[in-house]
Design a protein around this nucleic acid. Sequence first.
RNA 1: GGAUGGGUUCCCGAGUGGCCAAAGGGGCCGGACUGUAACUCCGCUGCAUAUAUGCUUCGAAGGUUCGAAUCCUUCCCCAUCCA
Length: 408
Amino acid sequence: MENVFKVLEERGFIEQMTHEAEIKELFEKEKVTFYIGFDPTADSLHVGHFLTVMAMAHMQKAGHRPICLMGGGTGMIGDPTGKADMRKMMTTEIIDYNVSCFKKQLSHFIDFSDDKAIIVDNADWIRNLNYIDFLREIGVHFSVNRMLAAECFKTRMEKGLSFLEFNYMLMQANDFLELNKKYNCVMQLGGNDQWSNIISGVDLIRRKEGKPAFGMTFKLLTNSEGNKMGKTEKGTVWLDPEKTTPYEFYQYWRNVDDKDVKKCLALLTFLPMEEVNRLGSLEGSEINKAKEVLAFELTKIVHNEEEAEKAQKAAKALFSGGAEGGSIPETEIKENELKDDMDILTLLTLSGLCSSRAEGRRLIQQGGLKMNDEKIESFDVVVKKEDFKDGKIMLQKGRKSFHQIKLV
RNA sequence: GGAUGGGUUCCCGAGUGGCCAAAGGGGCCGGACUGUAACUCCGCUGCAUAUAUGCUUCGAAGGUUCGAAUCCUUCCCCAUCCA
């Protein structure tokens, strides 16, 4: 069995761990059951989640058994870690819905057949907790003094922290304990922001059960400036194709900073490291090739090969005048809506390229709009049926945003 | 529960009766440069018609005033100290 530790280390996943030597040995000798928690804060996973999912996939490939823990219970509280502000409370309906979305997405990446991986929801044990029992059984093992010293609460000590959120750490520690008892789960993985929460669980198991438990965290996916990746002007880059289209997804990775290409290839694709190193060392405009590979591979994993090809085709068509076809964001307009003609600003807002007519005016005034490859000089322009070539109009906002209008 | 300081446009943050759609910075968007990169420079950044006007906005609701982000009242929320 290949030691997955080496794989994770080589690809740059690992940030810190509780017991290095023991963990290495464990991976060598045993089929390890481990878990990663996902709090259902939205109705789709995002790139940050995806990084830990990749780690999980590497682990599973190496023969270990993942548990995906859905935070249907912890989501009721909200993890204060790294958050500057208090979280909004979510209703159970929303949480349950989000959990169901997560489950669906995870099954794309993790093989749940034949008990090769497990999916559980901590709502099952958290929502029915008895307060006093919980305090007596779990609460006694926690020192407030130590918790307050924890890094994860530092930022919140200035901004304020409610008792509700303060309890989050106990809940997560208790999760680990539950999974340890039920499934013999001995290891928790997570993003590095989870370090405090993870070690609190490790400690709890060691104390209460007298059994070994381990924790390991992964590097957060940040760009060369230290900002979290997977955020754009439009918000988060989601894995759900309804929320972030495969084309937009592809473009996001096609446009990463030169300096981040290698890291992304290693962390977010399954390409062998020799290939990653080769692509990562390309220089000058050559690095664009590496970016294409990154975007393609990643889109392939998250969506599928067909979508990846469509996105790549579309990108090539738009940026280098290559073959037609592919998937460009598109808006349909009914022929009767168009009537005889429609002014360009209406079309812009309809397509979502601009959020208001004023924004559209600015765009045109500054020379940032092209229709069918011709610059629009004034915002009085009226779109007519004749402007549709093969039933389509191509709008280009700035250098990089394309949108098709289709007449139906 | 008490005292004090706060809540301003995406974010930070000025603004204490008219010259405020509200300084400055960040971010976003657009332009130039380029490799669909980075850096740099310039422009832009509430909405609607228009190049002036109207409408909505400064925690919420009322009130004073010819006129309020700015004053008053009540309420909500946050921080710090005290209990």
